[in-house]
Structures are given as C-alpha cells and as structure tokens.
Amino acid sequence: MANTLLPPSDILTFTLTPDNPTNTSITNAVGETIYTVVTDRTKKSTYTQVRDVSDEVIGSLEWRDVLADRVRVGNSKPMSLWDWMKKSPVPFKDQAVFMDERGRKYKWKGLAPGLSLQLFSNDDNYGTPIARYQRSHAILDPPITQIASLSSTPSPSLLSLSPTLTDSVRDTDAQSIATTLASAETQSIAPTLVDEPRTILPRRIIKQRSPATLLLTSRAAEIQDLVVLSFLFLEKYHRTRESGSVASGNTMQGLMLAHGC
C-alpha cells in the first residue's frame, strides 16, 4: 500500500447517529443503515450486539466491571477482549493489534485519553492509516462583540464632519465632545441601566454538531465487519479510560450518552 491516503472517491464514510459506540445506527454516504448497535441490560450483565444490514448478529460484547469485556465475533466462542486484540506493551499502551482470517495483522492506535482511533495494517509496516474515526464535535459561531451606546447619542452633525473643515471648527467640536464626556462622568451616582455604558464580552455559541464518522479506505473495506466491530468495542473501552475509572453499566451508559449529545 502506498504511503499516501486514497482519494476521497475511494473512501467509505460511515456515520454514527448518535456518537455512541454502544447504541447507534451506522449509515453509509447515501443514508442507508449498514449496522445497528444495541445494548441491553439484564439482571446478570449488560450486552452490546452489532447487527448488519441483513439483521444478522456479527458480533457482541459482554460488559464486565473488573475483568476485561468478553467479545464474540460471528459464531466464534466468547473470549476476552484482550485475547482477541493484543494490547501493546509499555510504553505503547495506546495500541491494540488483531489479525484477520488470512493472518494479516492490523493495529489500532490512539487509545490514550484525548486521542482518536486510527487503524493501520502490516502491509506497509503500519505506515499509513487505512481507517480513521472522527468524533462528533461542536461547531461554534464566530465571536460576537456588542457594545451598548451611551443614552446621549452624538449629534448627526458631529458624525458627518468633513475633513476639510477649518481648525477653528475642529477645536469647537472637540470642546463640545469633551463637555459631553465630562457631563457623562458627573451624572447621577445611581445611573439607570439605560444611561450606563455596557459591554458584552466576546462569546461563542454552539450552533450545531458535526457528525461522528468512521472513514475506511478500500483496504479497510476488505475486512469491513472486523473494522467496525473492533472499532466499536475499542471505542467503548477508550471512553471508559477517558472517564478516569472502570465504569459500571449505569455509569457507562451515562458516559456514552454524554459523548453522543
């Protein structure tokens, strides 16, 4: 694989709605639902199932508070998440490696808090990402500054002074402006809100959120189900780590909702 990203026309874009790896719909570029992710709680445990476009379960995850989550891929036997994917040793704790059915190796990077997941293959010695996750994020309006004017509005004649006026006229106008400012400074010690100058500091308003997307090159599309499953299960683990503690079912569901708002 060449050490360059493929052109946009060769990249699959999957959108997660909402941005929640344990409860979401994954759609393609034309809005078709390709995968459905649903999490159900029982008295004994919490389970996440991933279904494809044919409504077949392609993988599931059993949540566990102390031990590693237990994963099942297709019809395989349940196994520890870290038996399926191998975490890299120190100092590369932000990586996890797995293999496809042909024995080809893949590495997810970006498990450390604050990073985003990217998938690499051993084809080019893990040089170029073949899949990348982009979290949903707020789109902000530009800063807005509003300054309320004084109750005494300058005379229109002052605003339309021509630069060709004589110095005497300029001096007269300057004295008039100075008198107006002095009057404003010596007004009542209990001014009204209308009389008082008011400044609203620059602010940024959240207008909307960008969609959460998983981008796959044609190379990643060769193992599409594995990419989606490994991403979803790792991202759930990733967000647990970012919370700063091992999350129980209730805590984790709240965390996922927080990320998907």
Results as ranks from 00 to 15, higher is better:
258 A>S: 11
72 R>Y: 02
113 P>W: 09
75 N>S: 07
92 F>V: 12
130 I>Y: 05
63 W>S: 05
176 S>T: 15
170 R>G: 05
37 V>Q: 01
209 R>L: 10
148 A>Y: 11
235 E>C: 01
103 G>W: 00
75 N>M: 09
75 N>K: 07
48 T>C: 13
176 S>M: 15
26 I>R: 01
52 D>A: 13
60 S>V: 06
41 R>W: 00
178 A>Q: 15
210 S>P: 03
261 C>Q: 13
45 S>E: 04
205 I>D: 07
112 A>W: 14
33 T>K: 01
259 H>I: 10
61 L>I: 08
215 L>D: 04
205 I>F: 07
9 S>N: 07
7 P>K: 12
230 S>Q: 05
82 W>K: 00
233 F>E: 04
113 P>S: 12
79 M>D: 01
178 A>S: 15
157 S>G: 01
229 L>F: 01
239 R>T: 07
84 W>N: 12
232 L>E: 08
53 V>I: 13
22 T>C: 09
183 S>N: 14
95 Q>D: 08
67 L>M: 06
52 D>N: 15
9 S>L: 10
204 R>N: 13
63 W>P: 09
250 N>F: 14
83 D>I: 00
140 L>T: 03
122 N>R: 14
47 Y>P: 03
28 N>M: 10
11 I>K: 03
241 R>E: 05
155 S>G: 03
6 L>N: 13
38 V>I: 05
160 S>I: 01
17 T>W: 02
62 E>Q: 15
93 K>F: 07
121 S>D: 09
256 M>S: 01
39 T>Y: 00
258 A>V: 12
176 S>F: 15
204 R>D: 09
133 Y>M: 11
133 Y>S: 08
170 R>C: 04
65 D>H: 15
145 T>D: 02
94 D>E: 11
72 R>K: 15
95 Q>K: 14
28 N>A: 07
4 T>K: 08
95 Q>W: 05
164 T>Q: 06
152 S>K: 10
48 T>R: 09
148 A>P: 09
106 Y>T: 14
76 S>I: 00
141 D>E: 08
121 S>I: 14
83 D>C: 00
129 P>K: 06
164 T>R: 03
85 M>N: 05
82 W>N: 07
261 C>N: 13
242 E>T: 12
52 D>Y: 04
32 E>M: 08
154 P>H: 04
227 V>A: 06
257 L>H: 10
260 G>K: 07
122 N>I: 14
90 V>K: 12
162 S>M: 04
19 D>Q: 02
60 S>Y: 03
238 H>I: 07
78 P>M: 00
181 L>K: 11
107 K>P: 02
172 T>L: 14
133 Y>F: 13
225 D>R: 00
242 E>V: 06
178 A>N: 15
7 P>T: 12
213 T>C: 11
160 S>N: 09
154 P>E: 08
33 T>E: 10
227 V>R: 06
204 R>K: 13
93 K>T: 11
220 A>V: 01
47 Y>K: 10
26 I>H: 04
68 A>K: 14
150 L>D: 08
65 D>C: 11
43 K>I: 09
141 D>Y: 01
202 P>R: 12
216 L>C: 04
224 Q>D: 05
231 F>V: 05
82 W>G: 00
22 T>D: 02
